[in-house]
């Protein structure tokens, strides 16, 4: 790389989430060294106590679920040239958004017991793009390390990052997995955005949909398939809601 080029300054922030995506970045190991060759990391709570508000690219993890979150996110937005949402919670609400379809009082009591009243949480956990403008999204629970590096590299090189449009089934088949449906299991791979190399199915389980719905899913067909494999309408909805809840509500509202 030509030494004259300025390295972009990059910061990481977390909201409501498990910080599993930042952990993936720490786990990049030797590739982390390559990463710091192309960017300057100025804020990354998981790895360093140093912090600066002077950055070009901000990665935000976690869903947004209270006023304080929104204020912080707005400030990050105003500091950053480019905002990238990281992981399922920040891109599609993630597991946090499961509660959006449940009774809020019950949810609060279950989570905080007697302290429930002192928590100022919103009824809905929201993806970052609901609150501020987000340029790019890296989905996944957790994110795929290589996809993260690809997006960073694209941003540094001035290219437009893009996500796969194909569903999980494609990579699943390339890996010669036995289809979950052929071993009497169920799966959301046909409607979930690919790019994860179908790791969950390759490990012997099913796709849970953590990367969110593909752009134009044939949802009627997907529902039919799940029902034919023995799920009731409620069960299909529940399976769908685990990760797709926010996207589906957003779709209905459109």
């Amino acid at each position: 790389m030509s030494q004259t080029k300025m390295k972009p300054r990059v910061a990481f922030f977390d909201f409501t989430g498990c910080e599993g995506d930042q952990l993936q970045i720490i786990n990049l190991e030797e590739k982390l060294l390559k990463l710091v060759e192309i960017v300057d990391i100025v804020s990354f709570r998981e790895a360093t106590s140093a912090h600066s508000d002077d950055y070009q690219i901000a990665f935000v993890e976690g869903s947004i679920s209270r006023d304080h979150d929104a204020e912080r996110l707005e400030e990050i937005r105003s500091n950053a040239d480019t905002l990238v949402a990281l992981g399922s919670c920040a891109t599609i609400g993630g597991i946090n958004a499961v509660r959006n379809s449940q009774d809020f009082d019950t949810v609060q009591k279950r989570a905080y017991g007697d302290d429930a009243d002192r928590i100022d949480s919103w009824e809905d956990a929201k993806p970052a793009a609901e609150v501020v403008e987000v340029e790019y999204e890296i989905p996944g629970c957790p994110i795929d390390k290589d996809e993260f590096l690809r997006v960073v590299t694209d941003l540094v090189q001035g290219r437009e990052p893009s996500l796969p449009k194909y569903p999980v089934c494609l990579e699943c088949k390339l890996n010669e997995n036995t289809c979950a449906f052929l071993r009497e299991d169920i799966c959301l791979g046909p409607v979930t955005r690919g790019g994860c190399d179908a790791v969950c199915v390759s490990e012997g389980t099913r796709c849970w949909g953590c990367r969110g719905l593909i752009d134009n899913p044939n949802e009627n067909a997907a529902f039919d398939v799940l029902e034919e494999h023995g799920l009731s309408v409620e069960e299909v909805t529940e399976f769908y809601n685990m990760y797709f809840g926010w996207q589906q509500t957003a779709e209905v509202e459109q």
Partner: peptide, 24 residues
Amino acid sequence: LSCGTCNVVCPTCYCFNVDVVDYM
């Protein structure tokens, strides 16, 4: 479902996609 499975399991399908991948 437009999943592409019927293509990729087929012994006569020959389409491919080329990506340029740089090493960061």
